[in-house]
Design a protein around this nucleic acid. Sequence first.
DNA 1: TTTGTCACTTTGTCTGACAATCACACATAC
DNA 2: GTATGTGTGATTGTCAGACAAAGTGACAAA
Lengths: 260, 260
Amino acid sequence: MKGRPIVIPTSYQEVFRQLEAAILRGELAIGEPIPTEAALCDMFKVKRSSVREGIRLLEQSGLVTRNAARRLVVTAPDTRRSSENFIRSVTLNQVTLEELWRVEIELETLACRLACQNMSAESLDRLSENIQQTRDNRDDAKAIIRIDMDFHRLITQAAGNKALTIARDPLGILLYASTDFVITRLAQSTERLIAAHQRIFDALAAGDEETAVTWMKKHLNDFKRGCIMAGADFNQPIADFVDHDTLAALIRNPPGQGLQ
Amino acid sequence: MKGRPIVIPTSYQEVFRQLEAAILRGELAIGEPIPTEAALCDMFKVKRSSVREGIRLLEQSGLVTRNAARRLVVTAPDTRRSSENFIRSVTLNQVTLEELWRVEIELETLACRLACQNMSAESLDRLSENIQQTRDNRDDAKAIIRIDMDFHRLITQAAGNKALTIARDPLGILLYASTDFVITRLAQSTERLIAAHQRIFDALAAGDEETAVTWMKKHLNDFKRGCIMAGADFNQPIADFVDHDTLAALIRNPPGQGLQ
DNA sequence: TTTGTCACTTTGTCTGACAATCACACATAC
DNA sequence: GTATGTGTGATTGTCAGACAAAGTGACAAA
């Protein structure tokens, strides 16, 4: 016989499971508050402690967020939430910068292609404004990091593929958080960065896929070369490059807006 | 003036934050149990209810899992955890099958290339065995879905890029969960699937990147064509194709092993 | 129209208790 | 001596009830 392990769920896990299912089925609509704790006690016939523990699971899953009045309202998890998760996985699974970078190239390449096909005037404006910001802040390394992150995110958004946005966002945050290290040591990299961004922008504006992709790849190669010249070992785990507090701050307060 | 929103964290959130930081810093090593609830009460000077709610956040974040004795032990979040999250995002953000499929192509292409470069004898064996399983179960649509999922996951693992594994896994689960729909209506698609898998395998074994990629793309195009012939609208949201319970089952019990 | 006040609701935290389960050690039986 | 009961302590899951803090909404007062 085979015999699978026996798992008996606890009350609070059941509370979570049922609320999650209701949300994913659309019974609890996005934007609406979930029932009060007292009401949930009544619905599930368990005490408030169990309800509260179940709600905490729901809270961490990103399906609900607090409104002003501390009530929990149903929310579509934004990219920020996936990012937290991805970053935890990457950190604890000893993923190297090289591995992350390799995947990022692929996703940014796709983003470029799709953005060329779907570029809107509004997206172009935002990108243009971003490049201007980069020029204006060329001497402020910290600012550059955030603006650069935003540049890549804007391209991804311009691509108009929500799956791509959800998948790439966490990579972007992690990868560009490591840029800190490079930019602060390689002052001239900012000028290369600005030049590349400009080239990519021009190609996107012209709808020239190949040129956009080519320059994006150059740009990402520059990033890698910069890191290595600054003494970084690309085969080291990500965790060695960025400290947890920096990442936490980036996640809580990412550049631009989430997917919402 | 600008005025950022004021957020005062609760006790249980602080409990979570501090435990999370300790884990990511490596103070609480993977595999070790976290302190008992009583000990945490003592450390943080809060009552058990607050500790427990904090622990529930930690639990859902995937940083701890239960051992046999119900103690929570520190764990590196496996791909399963990211998958849950990604799937929730995708479902509630109305991502379409087309969007998901487009990203999947890119990641599978990368997987093929890397797998060609890093293919090990062991990975080849596993792939070979997988194809045999497919042949053996050609008449069992349900089984085919799982085995096919596993085929693609094996290639991703053979690529030897952990970031790729973490990023692609949830896409794979979602995409192939939708296959249910196709396979059950298009019996002959199984034969095409087997043929494609064989071609990809041969190319991977020969280290022939271009052929592997070409056939992988053909294979994924077949998938799309199959869906459309079966009456699926690729521009519909994923949520319309797969029900929540199927996904939940797939996540809880994925084919093969996770990243661990 | 704005501001202060009050009753009401809901959440956050505490207090204290008990049952269920597990690990571990020890005693007993074959 | 290995295997099977049994007891004890530790730990978690759940209950019960209480109160403080912070929000809402209505209404009176300036």
